[in-house]
């Protein structure tokens, strides 16, 4: 790890100001990606702006058909929240399957979503549930949020405050882990709102994406079999030593099917 300046602001404005002022400032939420990168000397920010003391970023509230989760809420808190378990059990289960207990006790929802790791779990829930990402500047629809590999709609100085999840009628997350890291080699989040269905896939391409042909088929018939014949092109699938593109494309169909079955379809 290289030397850096450390800041612990009390407010979002102060945090945004510190990042803006720094030569190469980075926000740190749970630090589950940033800190290992720094330890390996792969990242060398000049300043770390720690969000852990900023007021109002933690906590879970349910209001009507919306679950709002503060950006600094840890995975373990989402996983064990009775409110989340009741309203969106698929989201609680997803949080309980991220990393290992150490990661779940430090890692935060906002940190994961802002990082847009192609193999992270949370982005599939944000997109699959059609959540709204609230920042210090605006509200961004999930469909407009994830832009690419580690790339989101967040602008410089923009910080996630909370994420608002609509409560679905049924939902499930299923993942097939990469054998070494446990990250999703393919993960599928499926949610049904009345007749509308959303299918979000993580791990397979450079960022989380929806599968309209599956959503259409499931809207007509919310059964696993309804999408059994839908195969995605392997052309823009990720390919690495653990998973070739053709295998990934195949896994998307299988895992999505299993997610639908888990969601009661």
């Amino acid at each position: 790890m290289y030397a850096f300046n450390y800041h612990r602001p009390k407010s979002l404005d102060e945090a945004a100001g510190l990042v803006a002022k720094a030569e190469d400032g980075k926000l740190v939420a749970g630090g589950m990606t940033l800190l290992p990168s720094m330890k390996l000397r792969l990242a060398s920010p000049s300043d770390l702006v720690d969000l852990s003391s900023v007021d109002g970023l933690k906590g879970i509230t349910v209001s009507g058909k919306t679950v709002t989760i503060g950006a600094m809420t840890r995975h373990v808190d989402v996983h064990t929240s009775a409110d989340v378990q009741k309203a969106i059990p698929a989201l609680a289960a997803l949080a309980g399957g991220i990393g290992d207990p150490s990661v779940r006790n430090r890692g935060t929802m906002g940190g994961s979503v802002a990082n847009s790791d192609p193999a992270a779990d949370y982005p599939s829930a944000v997109l699959g549930l059609g959540a709204t990402v609230e920042t210090n500047k605006r509200k961004i629809a999930a469909d407009d949020f994830f832009k690419g590999l580690f790339e989101t709609a967040l602008e410089p100085g923009e910080i996630i405050k909370a994420i608002h999840y609509p409560v679905p009628d049924a939902a499930a997350y299923e993942k097939f882990p990469q054998p070494a890291s446990g990250y999703a080699m393919v993960g599928a989040f499926v949610a049904r709102f009345g007749k509308d269905v959303r299918v979000a896939i993580t791990g397979a391409k450079d960022h989380v994406f929806r599968v309209p042909e599956m959503e259409k088929a499931l809207a007509a018939n919310f059964k696993a079999d309804a999408i059994a014949g839908i195969k995605l092109s392997e052309d823009d699938m990720l390919s690495d030593i653990h998973c070739s593109a053709d295998y990934r494309a195949h896994l998307v169909s299988v895992i999505a099917k299993r997610a639908v079955a888990k969601a009661g379809g």
């Binding site: 054998p179 070494a180 890291s181 030593i241």
Partner: peptide, 11 residues
Amino acid sequence: LLTGTFMDYGM
């Protein structure tokens, strides 16, 4: 060595 960390080397 492409599998030099536990992210890629599966124990």
